[in-house]
Computed example of a mutant assay.
Amino acid sequence: MENFSTNERRADIIQLINQHNRVTVEELCKRYSLSEVTIRKDLEVLKKRNLLFRVRGGAIKIPTANIDGNDVHIESKRLFHHKQKKAIGKMAATLINENETIIIDSGTTTMEIAKNLHRFQKLTIVTNAIDIALEVSKYNRFDVILLGGYLRGSSLSTVGPLAESVLKVIYCDKLFLGVDSFNIEEGISTPNIEEANINQTMITMAKETIAVFDSSKFNKRSFAFISKVTDLKAVVTDEDTPSHLVADLRNKKIEVYLTPYDR
């Protein structure tokens, strides 16, 4: 391989990721005839510039929602901010009480709530997420209602009039809402308009709405509006959230739970 300057090599790495969506340290070492230490340093620098996302053994392209409203596949989302999501899910589960009827929205952070329900004996769980329904069914003691409707392959969730019609006859204690984009002034939004519609119905049928999301979702706006921030009872997020945003939320009488996580 021809000799690259440091900047040229890093630009080439980004081009490779854009072409193939993923690169490994091993293949980059061979490509540039350099040590793992040098390549890992390159990847860390590019990560800090928000040009790629580090995964074990290499890096992947940062997924972005398309302008037409198509969003990122759930399998890709699982790779991002995993430690934060685990901590958020564990914290959010402490806000549930025995015998409650709860809605768990689709998403990778809400999935972590489903994994932390061991202390409960009786819950009724309503969800539009196939993977979450399967997860909570493993407890073998909860009443699980999986909403029907049109299946969105990217999120493994159901949407549409059928799912919304079932929701409209179920009164729930709490909704745990997964969030793609959160903006204090402009509200909560998502790339998909059908997802926004079913989330709006969930909010209507729940006594309390608790938004669960990592701090990377702050100050973003997506295609389809879901609700105003003031519709929320609480926000569960990670400790990296800027203090001024926490203060803004608390000034609006929204409870904020900041979760530490293993770094």
Rank of each mutant, 00 (worst) to 15 (best):
P161G: 13
K138W: 02
Y171K: 07
E26V: 15
K253T: 07
Y261Q: 14
K220A: 09
P260Q: 14
S189D: 14
I193K: 11
R54M: 11
N128G: 05
A11Q: 14
V166Y: 11
I130V: 03
R221S: 14
L16A: 13
N183L: 07
T241I: 00
A211N: 04
I62T: 09
F53G: 01
K138S: 10
S215Q: 04
S137I: 04
L16G: 03
E36K: 14
I17M: 12
I74Q: 13
D105Y: 01
N97Y: 10
N50Y: 05
H20S: 08
D71M: 05
T109W: 02
S154D: 04
E164T: 13
N128E: 06
A206S: 15
L51V: 07
K228R: 13
N99G: 09
G148C: 11
Q19W: 02
P260F: 13
L52V: 09
I198R: 15
K138E: 12
A114R: 01
I39P: 00
L95D: 07
K47T: 13
I125P: 01
H118T: 06
I226Y: 03
S227W: 02
V212Q: 09
K77S: 06
I170A: 14
A211F: 05
E100Q: 02
I254Y: 14
D12R: 04
K77A: 07
M202P: 08
R56L: 07
N219S: 11
R9A: 10
R221V: 13
I88F: 00
V25M: 10
T237C: 01
I132S: 03
I130W: 02
E2K: 15
S76F: 05
N97T: 06
